[in-house]
């Protein structure tokens, strides 16, 4: 009796950590449910869960459906991380195929979670090049691309710095959209290049929350409507913030429409 209960308790604690971590790094809901149930199945248990944007509620049952343990896990903000998504998904299969003990599993989980991210300077440079390339895709000329490169460099640098200081997300988005578009508007102000509208328009596109948008629609299609809608609403709020930052620039520069 106590044995069963202790096992349920230990597994629930791990699964709660595991699933909230997956949610924090931006994994689609159906994959979270699949991976978590796979690990539970390894120990002869079943898990039922409700996934929300900020909390995950789960109940773990033993095989006879006589004992259960419930856990509510808070999702701590972590930032998107696809490497963790891939490694943690592999871990769930490894656990099933090699019948890992809970201690081994915990140890492997800790090593995956503590892996450092890509250097922020590399990210900064690559994002700037990416947004400049994006300007080309919108038929911007080479001068506009250079303007967008520097706009993104400044805007993203400010975003990274403010994120480290733990500012409010919406404030960060408004400020970095404003800074990036102010620099993007230099094409208008000084008459550089033939496509200043594209330079201004694409200078803020690096902020668009693409992965939450895709995940949200994916969740809705998979039937996790509540989780999907909350992701989409979150992303929509960020897009409104981008529009606010950009509109502030248009107001300052005195351009009517983009």
């Amino acid at each position: 009796m106590t044995d069963v209960h202790n096992q349920l308790k230990e597994v629930s604690k791990f699964l709660s950590d595991y699933s909230t971590c997956l949610m924090a790094v931006g994994v689609q809901t159906s994959r979270i449910v699949r991976n978590t149930s796979r690990i539970a199945r390894t120990y002869g248990l079943t898990v039922e869960m409700t996934v929300l944007l900020k909390t995950i509620v789960m109940t773990v049952w033993d095989s006879e459906h006589t004992h259960s343990y419930s856990a509510v896990g808070q999702v701590k903000p972590k930032g998107l991380n696809f490497e963790m998504n891939a490694r943690l998904s592999q871990l769930s299969w490894e656990c099933q195929d090699k019948q890992l003990s809970l201690d081994e599993l915990q140890l492997k989980y800790e090593t995956i979670v503590s892996k450092p991210r890509v250097s922020k300077w590399i990210v900064l440079i690559l994002v700037s090049f990416a947004n400049a390339a994006f300007c080309y895709l919108f038929q911007g000329d080479s001068i506009s691309m250079i303007i967008v490169f520097f706009a993104t460099l400044d805007g993203f640098c400010i975003r990274q710095t403010l994120m480290e200081r733990g500012w409010n997300h919406f404030a960060i988005y408004i400020i970095s959209a404003f800074v990036a578009s102010i620099i993007g508007s230099t094409g208008y102000v000084f008459g550089w290049g033939k496509t200043p509208d594209m330079a201004l328009g694409t200078s803020v596109l690096y902020l668009v929350p693409g992965v939450p948008l895709i995940n949200g629609v994916m969740d809705i299609i998979d039937g996790h409507v509540l989780a999907g809608t909350s992701r989409l609403i979150n992303a929509a709020l960020l897009i409104i913030c981008i529009a606010m930052g950009l509109s502030a620039t248009l107001f300052v520069i005195g351009i009517e429409t983009l």
Partner: peptide, 30 residues
């Protein structure tokens, strides 16, 4: 041995209609 979305999602990102989205918001504000 990676989930497909690890590289299919990033490759969709250049096609995300970000500019349409914020232009819609701006039109609403105007």
């Amino acid at each position: 041995r990676c989930p497909a979305e690890v590289f299919s999602f990033p490759s969709l990102l250049p096609m995300i209609p970000g500019m349409f989205a914020y232009k819609a918001v701006q039109a609403l504000a105007k």
